[in-house]
């Protein structure tokens, strides 16, 4: 908080916090869409939300945003139960994209900005900045329906981001964006996390999630099957190492304290039981001759994902 005056003109410097969902459940008839989901979206962190179709991501996000009644569970914001007033400071992007097709881009965004509590001039300034960043500065006067789907999506993103939200809940924000828009979007999101905003976004694109996210929540069949920092999750897999020699690597089969996954000429793929066993293997290899490569092989996120959702 700087001065009272600045908060009266624009809703900047909103107090951020951490979103915690505890035991969220929701059923539609006989179908249990979300079953006892507990997850944390820490302040200032980009949390990816992945899972297959029908895993319950959208249902969870709608419950967090208060758009869907929960059968059970609580959502906490800054450590206390969340209120509608809190949610009004959040930026939200629903899964199915929709704006008023016949209204002009800027008019529509000003309207949504005003509904978020911005003054019209403040909204216009924010919209101008965002349109510029997305390369849409010359399209502000066009009707939304005249824009391509990708550009409509950018307008929606602006709608969610322009009011300096206290938190961001984004359902599939990257789907349908071209690589340069993905980069602009990623930069924008990082700016928001840099000012302490918690960001939860769902995605099918695991490579993107791996590249962007600090944290990851994996949902399968309505339950959380993995949650944690991306590196931590990837590190959970076996400590697999790759060894490349000049000569044949067949001798590794005789080394104790490790499991040999594969040997192909001078290349061996092994899983040492612990760090000591790995070092012992390296020492032995160096004693026997030149070592071209010895490295930990970290499995890609997609492999982890397949493992936890299987």
């Amino acid at each position: 908080m700087t001065t009272a005056a600045s908060t009266l003109t624009t809703p900047r410097h909103r107090a951020t916090g951490t979103i915690e969902a505890h035991g969220l459940s929701r059923r539609f008839g006989d179908l249990v869409a979300v079953d006892d989901v507990t997850l944390t979206v820490p302040a200032g962190r980009l949390t990816g939300f992945v899972g297959g179709n029908g895993a319950g991501k959208t249902t969870t996000m709608r419950m967090v945003m208060g758009l869907l009644a929960m059968d059970a569970g609580t959502v906490l914001w800054q450590g206390r139960p969340i209120t509608d007033a809190d949610r009004r400071t959040f930026g939200y992007m629903p899964e199915e994209r929709g704006l008023y097709p016949k209204q002009k881009v800027v008019d529509q965004l000003v309207y949504l900005g005003q509904l978020s509590g911005m003054s019209a001039p403040a909204a216009r300034a924010a919209i101008h900045d965002h349109l510029e960043r997305f390369g849409l500065a010359d399209r502000g006067g066009d009707r939304v329906e005249k824009l391509s789907l990708g550009n409509q999506q950018r307008v929606q993103i602006i709608a969610a981001l322009m009011a300096e939200p206290a938190a961001l809940i984004l359902d599939e924000p990257f789907s349908g964006l071209d690589p340069s828009a993905v980069d602009s979007m990623a930069d924008l999101l990082r700016e928001h996390t840099a000012r302490g905003v918690p960001v939860l976004f769902s995605s099918h694109q695991l490579d993107l999630v791996e590249r962007l996210c600090d944290r990851l929540v994996v949902l399968a069949r309505g339950t959380v099957v993995a949650e944690g920092a991306v590196e931590e999750l990837r590190g959970r897999g076996p400590r697999r190492h790759r060894l490349v020699l000049d000569g044949d690597a067949g001798w590794v089969r005789g080394v104790r304290g490790l499991t040999v996954v594969d040997v192909d000429g001078p290349v061996a793929l092994v899983e040492p039981d612990d760090e000591a066993a790995a070092q012992a293997l390296l020492a032995e290899a160096v004693r026997r001759g030149p070592v071209r490569e010895f490295a930990r092989v970290v499995p890609p996120l997609s492999e982890i994902y397949r493992e936890v959702t299987a």
Binding site: R62, G66, Y92, R97, G98, Y100, P101, L115, S116
Partner: peptide, 17 residues
Amino acid sequence: LEEKQSRIVEIIATKIP
């Protein structure tokens, strides 16, 4: 119906009663 169908109502409903 248009607001409901396009889900813009979800954005509006998170901002105002």
